[in-house]
Design a protein around this nucleic acid. Sequence first.
DNA 1: CAGTTGACACCGT
DNA 2: AACGGTGCCAACT
Length: 110
Amino acid sequence: MKNDGFFTKVYEVTLLIPTGRVTTYGAIASYIGSPGAARMVGWALNNCQNQDEFIPAHRVVNRIGMLSGKQHFQGRNVMQQLLESEGISIVDNQVQNFEKHFWNPNQDLV
DNA sequence: CAGTTGACACCGT
DNA sequence: AACGGTGCCAACT
């Protein structure tokens, strides 16, 4: 798995996100050991579509809980549909009760 | 090898 | 408080 390195880490964490929960790019970046590389996370998720495995990238949003990456999904509101399907309310491309649904990867370590 | 990119985050105005 | 510009790190071309 070191072949992909950073990318794989992002995928791993993204896959670890519990259903009905969401996280931020910065949280993932910090978890993998590169705080500030939030932009990298976005790029990894962008390539995630190239991965054979499905990555729940819809559970990853920016720090304000906005579906910034929604545009990159195949469909228009696919990202929102998936989140709503998991019990998360989305309004204006923003996650309602974001803090409530927020899941910190570091918290899983404890 | 060097430059540019990228689904962000933070600081300054 | 809201908006804009800059900074980060790693991968891609």
